[in-house]
Design a protein around this nucleic acid. Structure first.
Ligand SMILES: [Zn+2]
Length: 293
DNA sequence: CGCATTTGACCCGCGC
DNA sequence: GCGCGGGTCAAATGCG
């Protein structure tokens, strides 16, 4: 394809004939359409890949946080966690551009300048649990719920109620395509510490059973395996240790497409990284070996 | 009785 | 100016 493209451009430069230009224009238009379609397709693939990466990262973060109690893996998990946070901050709107705010324009329009940091987290949960996620270490008070136009599932609005002066809000909405993925949008930063980093806030009364997710199993067979196989593999471990809910705390920002590309590159490098693989394998093996769960 | 959730009303920015 | 869609408020309701 690229060779044809190059040839056409060269012909365009060499032959200024009108007929040739006309023909070439048609060809170029066709090529443009084709490339546009390809671009669209690639964008869709990128989105799917990004969701899968987020899901996998969520699983891994949960696994790491669950292993944080043991002494040996604590260091590595902490390190990896910090690295992930570094990634998140690196992708996100890092600077507040306060240095460039010295001019009077920013004073005129302070609206979009000091915007609170918006991070997005993809959380993979069982579609059977109808309630939106709450258990991410913080304490939220629901203050609204609306139905959106292009998504059949409603969107819930939460506000951090742990500290009265905490301005953090979050919006939770189920993904339109894959109902097993919740999209949580966090806005702002907490000015306090969360009282339960991993998950288990108040342990639920159904501790005895082996099925933590309440599951009015209802309709068709769940776990459609729409996502990647490793997600399913990790999902088997999910209900084990963690008391009840299935939630994965991870945030990342991907509002512009360029940042999505960045995320993709990091995901690729992360999965290709032998250190990551080794850490994951050791974490899983350690998890399996000490079967405290 | 105090608290959180629910849910319709209200507000506000934006496009026509 | 008006309709629409998203975000928030607050009265009603539920629950421990
Ligand atoms: Zn907070």
């Amino acid at each position: 394809m690229e060779s044809a493209w190059v040839d056409t451009t060269l012909d365009l430069n060499i032959n200024p004939s009108h007929n040739t230009i006309k023909v070439l224009t048609g060809a170029l238009l066709e090529e443009l359409n084709r490339i546009s379609a390809e671009n669209k397709k690639l964008t869709e693939m990128l989105t799917v890949l990004c969701e899968r990466y987020s899901s996998l990262q969520n699983q891994y973060m949960e696994l790491v946080s669950r292993n944080s109690g043991s002494d040996a893996t604590a260091a590595t998990s902490k390190k990896r966690k910090a690295e992930c946070e570094d990634y998140a901050t690196m992708i996100g709107f890092s600077g507040k551009a306060e240095s460039s705010c010295s001019d009077e324009d920013s004073c005129k329009k302070p609206k979009d300048c000091i915007k609170a940091k918006i991070s997005r987290a993809y959380v993979r949960t069982n579609p059977s649990d109808n309630s939106l996620i709450v258990r991410d270490g913080y304490q939220w008070r629901k203050y609204g719920q609306k139905v959106t136009r292009d998504n059949p599932s409603p969107r819930a609005y939460f506000k951090c109620s742990f500290a009265p002066s905490c301005p953090v809000k979050k919006k939770v909405q189920r993904s339109a395509e894959d109902p097993s993925i919740l999209v949580a949008t966090y806005e702002g930063e907490h000015n306090h510490e969360q009282h339960s980093p991993p998950a288990l806030s108040s342990l639920s009364p159904n501790s005895g059973t082996s099925n933590p997710r309440s599951a009015p199993v209802s309709s068709s067979s769940s776990a459609p395996a729409k996502s990647s196989p490793p997600t399913v593999t990790l999902e088997l471990m999910k209900p084990t240790g963690l008391g009840n809910d299935t939630q994965n705390p991870t945030q990342q920002v991907d509002e512009p497409a360029i940042q999505q590309i960045l995320v993709q590159q990091m995901a690729a490098s992360l999965t290709r990284d032998p250190n990551f693989t080794a850490a994951l394998a050791s974490a899983i093996s350690g998890k399996v070996l000490d079967h405290k769960w």
